[in-house]
Computed example of a mutant assay.
Amino acid sequence: MRRPDLAGHLQPLGGVGQISPVQANVRNRASVERALEGAHAVVNLVGILQEGGRQRFDAVQAFGPRIIAEAAAARGIDRLVHISALGADPDSASQYALTKAEGEAGVRAAIPGAAILRPSVIFGPEDQFFNRFAELARILPVLPLAGGDTRMQPVFVGDVAAAVARAVDGAVAAGVYELGGPETRTLRELVDYVLATTRRSTPIVPLPLPLARLQAWLTEVATTMTLSMWPQVLRITRDQVRLLQVDNVVSDAATREGRTLEGIGITPTGYDAIVPTYLWRFRKTGQFDSSDLPPAPLRHDAQAIES
């Protein structure tokens, strides 16, 4: 990781000395090589949703995975798990999806036996999907929404972690796996779910593609003009708008061939079982929202009770 000093919260998750943060930058080959010293397996989780500063898609998602795989191969490490993304496509108009595909190609070239996992939108307590829309619904008078008809298959972070663990243990064969949850929903349906869960009635305003591109361009300009101090929750890029033009679901081929969570023996967790446990904080009265409390007991007249 680039900032091991920020990883203190990870230390209690293992035994004493079991977790040792090491500085590494996937844009720097020498730094990656040092980080892999003594390793028997490698898991690459590095990726970005938006470019900023020197963190560019081609450097982080295309060049980075390749040098990680090459460094692992040079040390005789053949167990590599690479986290890509559903929708990775060498012909995509989106730089995010394009560089994800290029990263996969670099990994396979160096370590043909690598396990490549392509999750759909990942959800969990600190996700940048359900939490983001809940925050937007809390602070905005209306909720502009582009790509409302785009289909998605949200997958629980715990299920993705379980898949990674199985791959590290050697229980997952080499190949490309597509990880999706049990439900396929449109983006509009998922945002409606967020509003229902947070007990908010923020109006949703569908954005046609040209307006969505304009909105994205304006937020990109605002981010640049404020030296990246523009609130993260309000940022959307033109590249993300391009991504929203393509469904983000597990393919029929992956399902037939068993290259899914179910195919490797993991039962996907539905978002409805997890998301309410962390979105309650966006309700106006938090976890004590009266609509969640049981009906108050009937009050009886004292004389009637005595009789």
Rank of each mutant, 00 (worst) to 15 (best):
G181P: 02
P112L: 07
L195N: 08
G158S: 02
L140M: 13
A171R: 15
A167C: 07
V205I: 13
V194E: 10
T197R: 11
L190Y: 04
A163D: 00
R185Q: 15
T197V: 14
L140G: 07
P112E: 02
T150G: 11
E178V: 06
I204P: 01
L207T: 07
L187F: 13
A162W: 09
T186I: 01
D149M: 14
A137N: 10
A165E: 10
F156Y: 15
V176H: 04
V168Y: 05
A163T: 05
I116V: 10
D127T: 06
P206N: 07
F123R: 00
V191A: 04
V168F: 08
L136G: 05
V157W: 11
D159R: 01
F129S: 13
V164H: 08
R185L: 14
A134G: 08
E135W: 13
E126N: 13
V160K: 06
S120C: 10
M152L: 15
G158T: 02
G113W: 01
R166D: 10
A174M: 04
F130C: 03
T184V: 15
D169R: 15
A114N: 02
P203V: 07
Q128A: 14
P182N: 02
A167D: 05
R166G: 14
I122K: 01
T202F: 02
E189H: 00
G180R: 09
F133H: 13
T202M: 08
T198R: 09
I204R: 10
D127N: 01
G180I: 00
A162H: 12
V142C: 12
P125Y: 07
T197F: 11
D169Q: 14
Y177I: 09
I116D: 01
I116G: 00
Q153E: 08
G124L: 04
A115E: 01
P112T: 07
A110V: 03
V157G: 08
T197K: 08
F129R: 04
G147V: 03
V157F: 11
L179M: 02
S120Y: 05
P125W: 09
V157Y: 05
G158W: 08
E189M: 10
D149C: 11
S201E: 15
P119K: 05
P119H: 00
G175V: 05
S120R: 09
F133M: 12
L117S: 01
R200H: 09
E126S: 13
L140K: 08
D127P: 04
F129H: 06
Q128C: 12
A134P: 04
L117F: 08
F156A: 10
L195A: 11
V176W: 03
L195C: 05
